[in-house]
Design a protein around this nucleic acid. Structure first.
Lengths: 216, 216
DNA sequence: CTATATACGGAGCAGACAGTCCGGTTAAGG
DNA sequence: CCTTAACCGGACTGTCTGCTCCGTATATAG
């Protein structure tokens, strides 16, 4: 992560091969695949996989960081687009498309045990906040929505994308059309402001719950 | 299921105890709990659990059928309420509350391998269709929504209810407020009609995907 | 009350899966 | 070309979990 140790050429090559293979296989089969499948795709033995990544979880984290970084980049690019509300919707569409293809992304992003991600996650949070604020200022997103709502909504959309991916991609579009209309609507009752703690905690806790971890 | 075999009294008693214990434990801990936990709660040995339910899956199915029946009953009661759109929203609120307390329900309902459920599932589908049609006729739900959309929406709400249950129940309310506004909205683009196959298949396939089963 | 079919309990079995270990191989400096 | 430290492969181990098996207990019919 930090400093690239000078290693033997084959070691570096194999590390990359494992990383790429794992990314593909996880995308295709989900996070439950066994290590031999990854090793085979990478053209190495299981021992090699575990030498480079001490546990399977570590491998998952390594890929997750790649993905998270890509997402942050994508959000920051969205910030420069001329039409913020449209940019937000295109962004959500892009993400859910990603999630539909790579079913593991949401769970990857969820891992609260990866300290290396704290920074990237903060960046994501900041960039997305800005985009949402822009959309709200433009009057095309209800102003009572807070980040916790947006993150929960992304979570739900990711879930739907995953669910529909192998069935009928059109359903995802319909679902999101309904949600976007809801994001725009101002006729209904106003949502009360949230306390600070909900703001900060939702992102992580929503996912932590799914994994049945202690609240710690 | 069909005919109650005349068994020994203790056997019947134990069967019920296992069923009730499993319902509680699954609700509290999720579907991953091990059989000994269920057996202990029921005050019996693991052997007894597996005698009455040949596999863990069979036990899960048995509980699922109970739950499904309760849901159908609830929908049919909703049909008699004077205010259909309100009834629909109260219904969704009720379900997601159930899901939040009993995290396993959605997965239970999903099991496409349980032929005994075909009937109950049909009943659910019919009753819910009626309720949706009533709400649409009352003009408080966009008319371009079809059952596949509603089922997908229920799926998403169930997921959110599960996610937020142990964190901040208020978030579920906020999420559903947004969704309900979306269901009401008529300003956005109109959704095209779906083919018949999507109508029928969505309910099952959405869940089948989650379990990574073959499309069969 | 007795006989016996029925049911019970929980130690133990089998399969699955993450992770280890070591004899063989290879990159790369001298 | 030779040496050797670094690296590789995959058989093997430890563990976890659904499920079985059989000696013991008990409901119930006669």
């Amino acid at each position: 992560m930090a400093i690239e140790q000078p290693r033997r050429a084959d070691a570096r090559r194999n590390r990359d091969a494992v990383l790429n293979a794992a990314e593909e296989v996880f995308a295709e089969e989900g996070l439950d695949v066994q290590t031999p499948a990854i090793a085979q795709r990478a053209g190495v033995g299981v021992g090699t996989v575990f030498r480079h990544f001490p546990t399977k979880e570590a491998l998952i984290e390594a890929i997750g960081e790649r993905q998270l970084q890509a997402i942050v980049d994508r959000i920051e690019r969205s910030l420069t687009e001329p039409d913020p509300p449209g940019a937000f919707e295109r962004l959500m569409w892009h993400f859910t498309g990603q999630f539909a293809r790579y079913r593991a992304v949401p769970r990857l992003l969820a891992n609260p045990a990866a300290p290396a991600w704290a920074e990237s996650r903060e960046a994501l949070y900041r960039a997305l906040s800005k985009l949402v604020a822009l959309a709200q200022d433009a009057g095309r997103m209800r102003p009572d929505l807070e980040m916790a709502d947006i993150l929960l909504l992304m979570n739900a959309c990711a879930h739907v994308a995953d669910s529909t991916s192998r069935v009928d991609p059109a359903m995802r579009k319909r679902f999101m059309a309904v949600v976007f209309d809801g994001l725009r609507a101002t006729g209904g009752e106003r949502l009360p402001p949230l306390g600070r703690s909900a703001q900060v905690d939702t992102w992580l806790t929503v996912y932590r719950t799914q994994k049945n971890l202690p609240p710690s």
